[in-house]
């Protein structure tokens, strides 16, 4: 199995070479910690790219923010995370609460919050921020289908991210699937957690759906749980895979 995966990546590199893209073996990736997802994505999500996360319902705002914060932790814990959102989002979805983000492992000192007046200002700030190499990750939270957020806007974000190496997570709450150049697109919704003693709600659990992926097939679903101690995703069945993530091909 490992051999086939290396030959696969060699093949990918050759294809990329023919296409005239980077020859350095594609972008660096960060693993989610969930073996099946990482295997499906060829080692994880690409760094320095734009990724989209969608949520269908305004009541899924917690899962949307939670998933984004967890991905940001996987990218680069310890480097500052800039979270841009509009004031409407702050009013509707609730204030971002640093103590709660701390409870999933994101240290409050690493978080910078930018509140923007409208979606145009949000995108302008996002474009500026995506160029700043001092950031660990950039989260851009938008709700609904704002007009300025079109294909060109995502392309601009993608270019800025590629140039600086900052991974940009574009959160789209209550949005329709629109054309975008994002590397991957996910849909997140909450999943019932594994109950603790006395039927108490357990650690955060999500239903993830990979809606789109530029580099390969998508349309997969996973049910994941967040493990705060390992700062990693794991399958929801409660049996965390310990040790290194095996580059297994998806079955």
């Amino acid at each position: 199995m490992p051999e086939s995966s290396t030959s696969l990546s060699r093949l990918r590199r050759r294809v990329a070479h023919i296409e005239g893209a980077r020859v350095s073996g594609g972008p660096a990736r960060f693993a989610t910690g969930h073996a099946a997802i990482d295997a499906w994505l060829g080692g994880g999500l690409a760094r320095g790219r734009l990724h989209e996360v969608m949520a269908d319902d305004s009541e899924d705002a917690g899962s949307l923010s939670g998933f984004a914060a967890m991905l940001a932790l996987r990218i680069d814990a310890g480097k500052p995370l800039l979270w841009l959102r509009t004031e409407t989002a702050e009013r509707r979805a609730g204030k971002l609460y640093a103590s709660g983000l701390g409870e999933i492992g994101l240290h409050g000192d690493d978080l910078i919050l930018g509140l923007l007046g409208d979606d145009a200002a949000l995108l302008k700030a996002a474009n500026d921020a995506a160029r700043c190499a001092g950031l660990g990750a950039l989260v851009v939270e938008s709700w609904g289908d704002p007009k300025p957020l079109d294909l060109t806007a995502t392309r601009r974000l993608m270019l800025a991210a590629e140039a600086s190496g900052v991974t940009v997570l574009l959160l789209r709450g209550e949005a329709r699937e629109s054309p975008s150049v994002a590397d991957t697109r996910w849909r997140v919704s909450p999943a019932p957690s594994i109950a603790l003693a006395a039927d108490a709600p357990g650690p955060p659990a999500f239903d993830l759906e990979l809606l789109r992926r530029r580099a390969g097939p998508a349309g997969r679903r996973w049910r994941v749980e967040w493990n705060r101690e390992r700062r990693a995703f794991q399958p929801l069945d409660g049996q965390a895979l310990s040790g290194a993530v095996l580059p297994l091909a998806a079955s």
Partner: peptide, 17 residues
Amino acid sequence: WPELETGEPPLRPIHLF
């Protein structure tokens, strides 16, 4: 920031109204 206990689920929400 408050210390976290190992094995506990999050006790505070990430969005606060």
